[in-house]
C-alpha cells in the first residue's frame, strides 16, 4: 500500500468516468449475473445461490435500508465483480467474490468452516425469444475455506 507516483496516476485514470460521466443508466438490459457456490467435501454437495432474495420486504425494512443497506450494496458490488470477471478477468474480482462468500459462510457457521473447500460460479440470465435462459459463464477453481482471506 506504499505511495508511488505511478500508482497515483493510474488511480487518477479510474476517476475519469466520474469527472466526465456518460450517464447511460439502463440503456440496455444486459445479461444479469447470479453468484452460486459449492461446498466441496460437505455432505450435501450442491450449487447454492449466494444471498438469494427474500420473498418479501416490509415497508419498515425498505425505509430502514435508506440509511443502512451494507449487505445489499455489497451484493451490488459483487454484481460488478461478476461483470468485470466476464469482461476482463482479474484475480481481484475473483478474490472479492471468494472472500465475501467465505466470510458469510463462517458467520453462518459460528466461526467454523462448513466444508474444507469452496468453489463459485457465475450464472448469467437473459431473455431469448421471450424466455429467460440461464448460462454458466464462469467457474472458479476450488479454494480452501480459510478464515483469513486477502481482503
Amino acid at each position: 500500500m506504499g505511495f508511488s507516483l505511478a500508482r497515483l496516476v493510474q488511480d487518477s485514470f479510474l476517476l475519469l468516468p466520474a469527472v466526465v460521466p456518460s450517464w447511460r443508466f439502463f440503456d440496455e438490459i444486459a445479461p444479469s449475473p447470479r453468484v452460486e457456490y459449492l461446498l466441496l467435501g460437505h455432505e450435501q454437495e450442491e450449487w447454492l445461490e449466494f444471498r438469494p432474495r427474500p420473498e418479501k420486504i416490509s415497508i419498515f425494512k425498505m425505509l430502514r435500508r435508506m440509511v443502512w443497506n451494507p449487505t445489499w450494496n455489497e451484493s451490488l458490488f459483487l454484481v460488478s465483480c461478476a461483470e468485470r470477471l466476464m469482461a476482463e478477468p482479474t484475480d481481484h474480482s475473483a478474490n472479492e467474490i471468494f472472500d465475501r462468500i467465505s466470510r458469510d459462510l463462517f458467520v453462518a457457521n459460528k466461526g467454523m468452516a462448513p466444508a474444507p473447500f469452496l468453489k463459485f460460479r457465475l450464472v448469467f440470465l437473459y431473455r431469448v425469444n421471450g424466455i429467460i435462459e440461464r448460462h454458466v459463464t464462469y467457474q472458479s477453481e476450488a479454494r480452501a475455506l480459510e478464515r483469513e482471506g486477502p481482503l
Partner: peptide, 12 residues
C-alpha cells in the same frame, strides 16, 4: 429489469 436483473429487492 423486474424479471431477471439483479436489482429487485424481493421476489414480491
Amino acid at each position: 429489469v423486474f424479471r431477471y436483473s439483479a436489482y429487485p429487492v424481493s421476489e414480491q
